[in-house]
């Protein structure tokens, strides 16, 4: 299963997806790093026996998963809501009680 090369254009596409700005000339060295790192991790493709097993995300799952659920009750202690003033004070910009950001132009989710 050959994969496409990971050139500067690909790096730029990924950077846009991650909302990371790349300065002019920054994509090329990153593409080189990518090439080396992905060349190294390509060893995993030789592990044919991996096809037979399920992906592992939760290495140590809880013995009783239902016990991790939270009661639908009022917040107490560290789970309580923050004071509004604290929310507003932490924000880089706000208008009254609302947080302010530059206009969201037509760009969907």
């Amino acid at each position: 299963m050959p994969l496409p090369p990971h050139g500067p254009d690909e790096v730029r596409r990924i950077a846009a997806l991650a909302r990371i700005r790349l300065a002019p000339g920054e994509a090329e060295p990153l593409a080189r790093d990518f090439g080396r790192i992905l060349g190294y991790v390509d060893r995993l493709r030789a592990r044919d026996e991996a096809d037979a097993v399920e992906p592992l995300v939760h290495a140590v799952p809880p013995a009783e998963p239902a016990s991790t659920l939270r009661p639908d009750g009022p917040a107490v202690g560290p789970a309580a809501p923050l004071p509004l003033a604290q929310v507003i004070a932490a924000a880089p910009d706000h208008d009254g009680r609302l947080l302010r950001v530059p206009r969201v132009l037509e760009e969907g989710r």
Partner: peptide
């Protein structure tokens, strides 16, 4: 999100 007139968006979480 509510879109105010002058190029900004206000957010209530």
């Amino acid at each position: 999100s509510s879109h105010a007139g002058d190029g900004e968006t206000l957010v209530d979480f």
